[in-house]
Amino acid sequence: MQAFEYANPATLQEAVAMLGSSWGEADILAGGTDLISLMKDYIHTPKRVVNIKGLKELQGITKTATGLRIGAVVTFDEVAESPLIRSEYPSIVQAVLGVASPQIRNMGTVGGDLCQRNRCWYFRQGFGTLGKDKDGTSLPPIGENRYHAIFPKGDAYFVSASSLGPPLIALGAKVKIAGPSGSREIPVEELFVVPTSNKGREVSLAPNEILTEILIPSARGVRNATYEVRHKQALDWPLATASVALRMKGSTVASAKIVLGHVGPTPVIATEAEALLAGKALTPDLAAEAGKVAVNGAKPLSGNEYKVQLTRVAVKRALMEAMKARA
């Protein structure tokens, strides 16, 4: 780890002011589960680390007129324990419990989950966000890509590591972002971006912006679930996930949101599968069909064709789980 200056701002405004105007100058410290490792591996070498855990604007889970607000530094454990979330958002609880380590759940924050860097092993070994060799060759497609994207975009072959991205997008959530000129709100799907340079980032934050809270609309009457295919029961990254949110009209699906995780550089919205379900009664066969449609357009790499199948299954099982779940 390179030496850095540690900042403990007292207010959000102060925190924003302590950040740098370009990437690499300062890093935001919340749970630290990603940042500390990035710094140990010299992938991030910030001159300053700004601790945002003490900022009151970023705390707590509260009910709002339209749904729920989760502060960015709320931990995974707090999410899993929250009656407000448990009662209405099983898809979020399932995603959070998919992180099988209590230690990570106690440390990791919801904001950190959304803003974490990708886990591509080329990136983690210093070959840049996109994993390019000195000669500019993209390493994932010619190398080992079993955990990489089946929906790559441009030169981005890594997968978004976020657990919460897919369920939050499926639920129509927004994030609030504070910057030097005030705050803004964007849908969660707009938070995730595909970097086009090897130094690019996976989220649409400016270097001096802080994700402060997540705003989730009420899910009353929305059946929702997340299914993760994981190799190990103990702590492990999922191989493919699907989060679904179904607005029901009696026993038929009025509208569906289906979002895939760990298959693309951003969470992938399975619009074709969503359309397929609209106006139909959900049966196991239809769920399986939705799974098939969800992977239309997948472009697997040399070693990850299997993830296409896993994605089909994740969609099918998430849908079946949603039908079991409390509406």
Partner: peptide, 21 residues
């Protein structure tokens, strides 16, 4: 990794060991 000659998983994250479950 064939091209870079690196061990891609010199860690305990992707060099996977069974957990208690």
């Amino acid at each position: 990794d064939a091209k870079t000659g690196r061990v891609l998983n010199p860690d305990m994250e992707f060099y996977k060991l069974a957990g208690i479950g």
